[in-house]
Design a protein around this nucleic acid. Structure first.
Length: 565
RNA sequence: AGGGGCGUAGCUCAGUGGUAGAGCAGCGGCCUUUUAAGCCGAAGGUCGUGGGUUCGAUCCCCACCGCCCCUACCA
């Protein structure tokens, strides 16, 4: 951490270590504060673009310093934010402002600048809101106006003055004194188109946030969604916990993990693919209602719906089952939609999602429901439940799909009945679930952590919630029979494959042996939920810094390393 | 991984097989209530990178790099 009492001579007067590469032309020297000069020595050829402006602004910074200003001052005390002023005085008339004439001190980033001769206007932006300032030479004086001249778009300043309205009736600050706060050595994106290059928006999110209101709103909304979720669960007696991100065994989901290494212990660890097994240990420990909002990491593809690290809310509730959760979810999604967007009807792209009700379908019903008419008579529930029934139905579906050019179900290796059912559902029904839908009764074969249905052990008490064709939640009555759990884990391990655990999580079985209450648990994908509630078509629009390939220019991978041939 | 698209000034975008264009930003000048401020002037580019075709390539061809979209894997 940086010392908050920074400002003592030692810190400032020490020449900066060149360290072999600096982007600055001028290196500061060990002169005392306020009288320091720059030395123009090229330290390294590395520079940020645009170079002319970078250099120009460095020169201006020196000139500002020459005016007696600290180039990086430690303190500015403000009385109001731009947002607060707009909020409070947005409707107040000029004469009323004149009558009050309260002294205010406001800070912000300069986002527009109109300078004319001996006066000028600018807009200060703070927390996404802007207020205009008016700077007049007569008022701020020779030096103050000189400082004003040296300001660029992007600089941070503070002002002292009072509110008034201009000829065009815009609420503005009549500036009596200017305070330089920080220099933008690089220019902001273009002022009315903003930043549209998506790559730049993701790589340099800070510019996106400065330039694009829409973007800052999305992330503010994301924060509110998480707040709402915490409120919802806190009000129901849950406690929030944090469980390990580094796991000795990657469990709790079927996914390829990231591998890392701890030096002192000399062990490989996996970045967690799910917090599930740890949270359930906590229900064993007597935390009857727990939740965690945190990251999961899966070493898999990147798409508009997938980022290698993503945020999940997971929660567990003792003495409940999946029916209780389904009911709770209907409430939760409706409340969220209402509180976040103002309505339970939410616009998403070209469609409107209605969160006031959720249709419920069993997986087998969904297959029937979305079975294409041209593919013949849909399979009966009895057929789908019978041995090899799902496989037979899939063959019939594939026959049609291949003829019509639709995606067909391609099985890798031999599948069990439950796997066929899951595959068929994913192939033909999943992307049709546009309106919020609770899909329930998943095959046991693809639900290794769920309790079976007492009347049909081939199915489990598990559901998923689909919205706009995306899976956003996954919950079930948790399997708490240690013998059955061990059997299913061993079956997974025997099955093999990159996505399956390699090792039995013995401690988890031991925990279950100490007794886990009947519990229902669920995970909700926060990123996807945020997409839905902010009308964002890509997951990268709701993740501040989505994973991208590292920028070229540093050590480039292929060219420098490619001597294998 | 496969298919499609994109890459031109710091930003937003035009454009052409024959010396590269605008607006904004930046620079110099004028301007004391402007607001996409205005007016005058000057500057700014390895047209993603590397090959090839050509008398000549930013443009055509190939490869590579990066990003976006779709499909596959996945939540």
């Amino acid at each position: 951490m940086r010392d908050s009492r920074a400002g003592e001579e030692s810190l400032d007067s020490a020449p900066r270590e060149a360290g072999g590469s600096s982007v600055f032309l001028a290196q500061r020297t060990g002169r005392p504060l306020y009288s320091r000069a720059f030395e123009f020595e090229r330290i390294s050829p590395l520079q940020f673009e645009p170079r002319d402006q970078f250099e120009q602004r460095q020169k201006k910074l020196q000139q500002i310093e020459a005016l007696g200003q600290d180039p990086y001052p430690r303190e500015f005390r403000w009385t109001d934010t731009p947002a607060a002023l707009v909020e409070r005085y947005g409707q107040t008339s000029g004469p009323e402002l004149e009558a009050e004439k309260r002294e205010i001190r406001v800070a912000g980033r300069i986002v527009s600048l109109r300078l004319m001769g001996k006066a000028g206007f600018a807009h200060l932006q703070g927390s996404g809101k802007q207020i205009q300032i008016y700077v007049k030479k007569d008022v701020v004086g020779e030096k103050g106006f000189e400082l004003f001249h040296l300001l660029d778009l992007g600089d941070f300043i503070g002002v002292r003055g009072h509110l008034f309205r201009t000829k065009t009736n815009e609420l503005s600050i009549w500036v009596e004194e200017l305070f330089f706060l920080s220099k933008a050595l690089l220019p902001l994106p273009e002022k009315w188109h903003g930043l549209t290059d998506v790559e730049l928006r993701y790589r340099q999110r800070y510019l996106d946030l400065v330039a694009n209101d829409k973007s800052r709103e999305v992330f503010a909304t994301r924060a509110r969604i998480i707040q709402e979720l915490r409120r919802f669960f806190d009000a129901r007696g849950y406690i929030e916990v944090e469980t390990p991100m580094m796991h000795p065994i990657a469990g709790g989901a079927a996914a390829r993990p990231f591998i890392t290494h701890h030096n002192t212990l000399d062990v490989d660890l996996y970045l967690r693919i799910a917090p599930e097994l740890y949270l359930k240990r906590l229900t064993v420990g007597g935390f009857d209602r727990v939740y965690e909002i945190n990251r999961n990491f899966r070493n898999e593809g990147i798409s508009t719906q997938h980022n290698p690290e993503f945020t999940m809310l997971e929660f567990y509730e003792a003495y409940s089952n999946y029916r209780d959760l389904m009911d709770m979810n209907e409430q939760l999604f409706a409340i969220l939609a209402k509180n976040i967007t103002g309505s339970t009807i939410v616009k998403f792209g070209e469609i409107e999602l209605d969160f006031s009700k959720m249709q419920r379908l069993s997986m087998r019903e969904a297959i029937q429901r979305y079975w294409p008419g041209e593919a013949g008579v849909p399979p009966s529930l009895a057929e789908l439940a019978s041995p090899s029934g799902a496989q037979a139905a899939t063959s019939r579906y594939n026959l049609w799909a291949k003829q019509s050019g639709s995606p067909y179900a391609a099985a890798k290796g031999s599948l069990s009945d439950g796997e066929w059912t899951g595959l068929l559902f994913e192939t033909m029904a999943e992307d049709k679930l546009i309106q919020p839908t609770i899909l329930y009764d998943f095959p046991t074969d693809i639900s290794p952590l769920s309790k079976q249905k007492p009347e049909d052990p081939s199915l489990t008490e598990r559901f998923e919630i689909y919205v706009a064709g995306m899976e956003v939640a996954n919950g079930f009555s948790e399997l708490n029979d240690p013998a059955e759990q061990e059997r299913r884990f061993l079956a997974q391990i025997a099955q093999g494959g990159e996505e399956m655990p390699k090792q039995l999580d013995v401690d988890y079985i031991r925990a279950l042996c100490h007794g886990m209450p009947p519990t229902a648990g669920e995970g909700i994908g926060i990123d996807r939920l945020t997409m839905l509630l902010t009308d964002s078509p890509s997951i990268r629009d709701v993740i501040l810094f989505p994973l991208l390939r590292p920028e070229a220019g540093g050590e480039s991978s292929s060219t420098t390393e490619a001597h294998g041939a």
